[in-house]
Design a protein around this nucleic acid. Structure first.
Lengths: 138, 138
DNA sequence: TTACTTGCAAACGTTTTGCACGATT
DNA sequence: AATCGTGCAAAACGTTTGCAAGTAA
């Protein structure tokens, strides 16, 4: 997984430096949405020279390369999760922060109907589900 | 409309002060999502003594009373729109920021199926559409 | 060798807090 | 009269920027 990330980053013209590789390691290997500061804390255990600024700059590059995306939650909108090429939606555990991805929504009819009613040209949509994962139900 | 807002705020134990009333006037009378600073700027034209801090504190009360809600957009998550009692979704114009509200999503089947697949208890969902309003299409 | 990236420090913009004064109930 | 809300100033917070030094290509 990491090597695909590295390849895409290189293809986008970014240099594969220590800090960027560390951030990739941290984010690509987690199931939870992480904030820049959480990423920084974990990254420091792998590379104690890394600066918080590099985490922000790495996130910019990863977002630009569509390898990560920002997650919006009632509690805040600073955290990031790995992203994929295809259109997808998120299912978030409100308790532990675990994130699952799903596809296959049947929003076509709804979108067409809202578009007809409002005259809007609809270009994008966000769908997110919130709940409790199996572990956190106990 | 404003008087209903005042009533609900009073019922929640809040005092009807000048700044709060001004913020209600501003938000209840707009079709656009407004940031605290935008609200402050408009509020000053109606009450030049109002402070930005009061805008923040009024928004807290209005959110607590479920009269406004925060809007999440790719460009940021600081703006607010009037809210209603019933479950609803937003349609946003990415160009002018106009917000329309709609109900009646048919997400039940999808939610049940995702719940079965993942073992999550799903408690809430967000659905937002982005597009261009009729004016901004020209 | 060149140009991108780094870490640090400082700047920035938004939001929150402490406090004495003022206003609502 | 009691308590809640105000405005101001200062602090806190997350994020961005400028810069000289370091490093990948």
């Amino acid at each position: 997984m990491k090597s695909i990330w590295f390849e895409k980053l290189t293809k986008n013209g970014y240099r594969l430096t220590g800090p960027l590789k560390t951030v990739v390691e941290v984010i690509s290997g987690t199931a939870r949405a992480l904030t820049p500061i959480e990423i920084f804390e974990i990254a420091k255990t792998k590379n104690n020279k890394i600066g918080l600024v590099s985490v922000y700059r790495s996130l910019e590059k990863l977002e630009e390369t569509h390898l990560v995306q920002r997650v919006h939650q009632p509690s805040g909108c600073q955290s990031f999760v790995p992203s994929t090429d295809h259109h997808e939606h998120l299912l978030l555990c409100s308790t532990c922060g675990e994130v699952k991805v799903f596809e296959g929504d049947e929003l076509g009819d709804l979108i067409r109907s809202i578009s007809d009613q409002t005259g809007y040209v609809i270009t994008d949509h966000w769908l997110q589900l919130f709940g409790k994962c199996e572990k956190c139900q106990k």
